[in-house]
Design a protein around this nucleic acid. Sequence first.
DNA 1: GATGAATGAGTTTTCATTCAT
DNA 2: CATGAATGAAAACTCATTCAT
Lengths: 222, 222, 222, 222
Amino acid sequence: MATQRRVTPRKRPSQGRSKATVEAIVQATARVLLKDGYEACTTNRVAETAGVSIGSVYQYFPNKESLVVAVMEGHLGQMQEALARRLGELSDADLPTVVKSMVGGMLEMHRIQPRLHRVLLEQVPRIGALKRLHELNDQYEPLVAAWLEAHQEQLELPNPGAAAYVMIAAVEGVVSRVMLEKPGWVELGVLEPQLTRLILGYLAPHLVPITRRAPSPAPAAP
Amino acid sequence: MATQRRVTPRKRPSQGRSKATVEAIVQATARVLLKDGYEACTTNRVAETAGVSIGSVYQYFPNKESLVVAVMEGHLGQMQEALARRLGELSDADLPTVVKSMVGGMLEMHRIQPRLHRVLLEQVPRIGALKRLHELNDQYEPLVAAWLEAHQEQLELPNPGAAAYVMIAAVEGVVSRVMLEKPGWVELGVLEPQLTRLILGYLAPHLVPITRRAPSPAPAAP
Amino acid sequence: MATQRRVTPRKRPSQGRSKATVEAIVQATARVLLKDGYEACTTNRVAETAGVSIGSVYQYFPNKESLVVAVMEGHLGQMQEALARRLGELSDADLPTVVKSMVGGMLEMHRIQPRLHRVLLEQVPRIGALKRLHELNDQYEPLVAAWLEAHQEQLELPNPGAAAYVMIAAVEGVVSRVMLEKPGWVELGVLEPQLTRLILGYLAPHLVPITRRAPSPAPAAP
Amino acid sequence: MATQRRVTPRKRPSQGRSKATVEAIVQATARVLLKDGYEACTTNRVAETAGVSIGSVYQYFPNKESLVVAVMEGHLGQMQEALARRLGELSDADLPTVVKSMVGGMLEMHRIQPRLHRVLLEQVPRIGALKRLHELNDQYEPLVAAWLEAHQEQLELPNPGAAAYVMIAAVEGVVSRVMLEKPGWVELGVLEPQLTRLILGYLAPHLVPITRRAPSPAPAAP
DNA sequence: GATGAATGAGTTTTCATTCAT
DNA sequence: CATGAATGAAAACTCATTCAT
């Protein structure tokens, strides 16, 4: 389809000054992406915004794509950390805790630079931000799968192998979309209980507390 | 952020000859997108592939973006139809039928031109394919919501207002991702029961059949 | 410099219907020139404005330039007529009458479609409207020269051969410019006496009436 | 009518190298205009003629029009200077001197690149060369008007407010036209005395020397 | 004659990238 | 290392003109 090319930074900046330059360039790229969109994000504009010459940009980055990739990696790295903080250890946690961790982690990681996230997802071609986001999620599949396996008896899983994957994908899918369409739901706390129920109902329907006549009214979509 | 511009076709073809031309152009665009990716999808290449002159392309489409939009609209239109066929009427269906329709409809609509779908999602900037896909889904929210409301008694919904939305988003999120990462699951019939259980567990956990010791091993991801 | 090409209409319309079509096309050209300027005056737009197909335009006009030339010829023809009406016969007129005729004729001919005149002069390249306008004026040089020669005795002309030319050029130059910069002057009657004096002072300074202390204030430039 | 767009240079050249580039581009534009006319004056041809890449042209000029404007500004600047040299100070000069300065200044400024002048006037659309030329002239109106006012007593002006304008327009009109139609007249010295008489007869007819029976024959128009 | 779909050479313009200073 | 002038391939797009119907 399309030709591959190097997207990794050209050289590691060793000295402090260089490191600052590289940082400035990456931040400038993010800023331009946010302010003007991908199409208007030219290398010259990035250089200008960063306050360096275009030559300096090419000192550290082999091409334009690598600039955007650097921004994406930085952003995904932060998301990764946010998720890791919550999901890091769930070895001996009980089911509600695990579900809560998962849902909470997903929500938290999507609170990081949501506008930049949107631009990376919707506007940047070829970068494969969606794929990388999925991969990020997938890293936790083994962890979740392991826990599920370890607690199989209390669960009602017809297909434990697929469960971790489906569960992660479902939460990520809902959160991701809500962030784009109804960001208010996250802040209002509407989303979290729904997701908790969604996952709990999936893993262990018999443990879902019976909710008779919920008098709580539906929230207005923003 | 970025400036808007017209993406609607320039003029309606009146004669039969020109109608064929327009069709050829749109199909050529899709073909080039698939074969060479978005970046290589230049207007001249589209014209060449369609077997028309570049002038004819601009006779009917104001700019490059409008070409891709036309492809997207055609594709989403087909998806829409596929979903509508299944979800069209669920007024007096029972719960399992409704869930099955939903899940089945989503799966079916994602079977349409999955490679083109992927290109539109991952490579085409600014077009907002993701957004449009979400909008397509959202059209069915009222339908599903109405059904949920009509059958509230047999359900266990703490927040019926959000339920339809979450439910659709979850299924779409999982299906969409599985299509990209594990397309085999769909054909193998792995996904459908999982999604059915996911939604059933969400809407009415007390109705999920108890599955003791499923001896079926997890399928290997392709 | 640039290549010559045919600018005359392709064929004379013989039938009434064709004549109407040609007329419609020429008028449409003028209308588009006025409304949108030369750059936006494309053949297709002219055809559309005229309510005929582009093919019909090329039935009667060999190329775009001939369209604009036709407009110019029509316009200059009208100017020509206006001037001719005044300058047609001055054989036995006296000096003030001749000068008045000249100045009046120039003023009158510049009252014809001044906005179209401006567009033709300022925007249309290659057509040579300025040159044609000069040529139009120059047609009257022999007439004026003959009169001057016939009345040499009462004049004070050091170079009667040049006088007609200079005189015409001066009046045309002033009128033309005033039309662009201070059109109000023409209507207010400011210009005519000045031009009369200019020419009379040139041809026969001793005949200029002595104007002591003109208390009339200067008119405000619009 | 037509949309405005930027015609000013894009960036000021800072280094010596780029200053030479800009100069080469402007000169090349003038050369191409002269040699091939406006229609054939494409940006690529200008770049080629200047010996720079097309990219360098767009580094300093936002579009084609701005190139031609730069040429026009340069040309008008030179004209301006030529006129200023003569008209700069006429505070305490006497009438014949002032008239001579005016006429001489106009003639001199029209000796500057007459062929380029013609191309700019006749071929270049939208640039408004005629208007700018008028504006250039008009700058001197106050100067001339002030002088006229200061010497009102010795003049015979029915409308001093209009006099300066009419006078300038008349001379410019004649000179401009003679340059196009009878350039020889300027060199042969035919024009200057005629214009002097024209203006003198306008401002102070009683001061025009009586010319009896000029035996000099009229020169043949080239 | 009339139509308007089709043409395609030719233009302007952009922008990632290089490299002399 | 930093600079920014210079590059030029390549893209989008226009519009006068032709010609089959």
